[in-house]
């Protein structure tokens, strides 16, 4: 069974490439992060913008300096709001992945994200090699990607 192998997931991962890059090089409390937070991709399954809503609200929670447990609680709270609203399984799956990526970002543990490369499509892997990895801090590139300059 293959996970996360659709165009929507490709777009979502690319979006998080940019989000992680800004968080790890500029910070969450910067204009750059706010700009990238608002550039939410248009996903085919997100016809009623519930995924967009979750991404926008979920990422904005990162600025509030909540503890990880409180952040997880609030992200779950956002998800529960969608129950009974006719949200599709595909949307919920993307929201679930987004929640995981947001929590990993807040822990500033990029290894969690990099380990997900096994789920990336070929195009996404190439995009990461060309755009995401080179934009990460040097120490992360050396430690996790074995890129030495």
């Amino acid at each position: 069974m293959s996970y996360f192998q659709t165009d929507d997931y490709d777009e979502l991962f690319k979006y998080f490439f940019d989000v992680y890059t800004i968080a790890f090089t500029k910070g969450l409390a910067t204009d750059e992060f706010e700009n990238i937070r608002q550039q939410i991709p248009n996903l085919n399954v997100d016809h009623d913008k519930r995924v967009s809503f979750f991404l926008g609200e979920g990422l904005s929670l990162l600025r509030e300096a909540y503890t990880p447990n409180v952040l997880a609680l609030l992200l779950d709270h956002l998800c529960i709001e969608f129950l009974g609203t006719g949200i599709s399984v595909e949307q919920l799956q993307i929201i679930n992945l987004s929640k995981y990526l947001i929590k990993s970002l807040y822990a500033f543990d990029i290894s969690e994200f990099l380990f997900m490369a096994r789920f990336w499509s070929k195009q996404t892997k190439i995009y990461a090699e060309e755009h995401f990895y080179p934009s990460l801090p040097i120490d992360i590139q050396e430690k996790y990607l074995h890129r030495h300059y």
Partner: peptide, 13 residues
């Protein structure tokens, strides 16, 4: 309050 870590400015509240 502004809080930094080694990756930059993370919170400004």
């Amino acid at each position: 309050v502004r809080v930094y870590n080694e990756r930059g400015l993370q919170h400004s509240l």
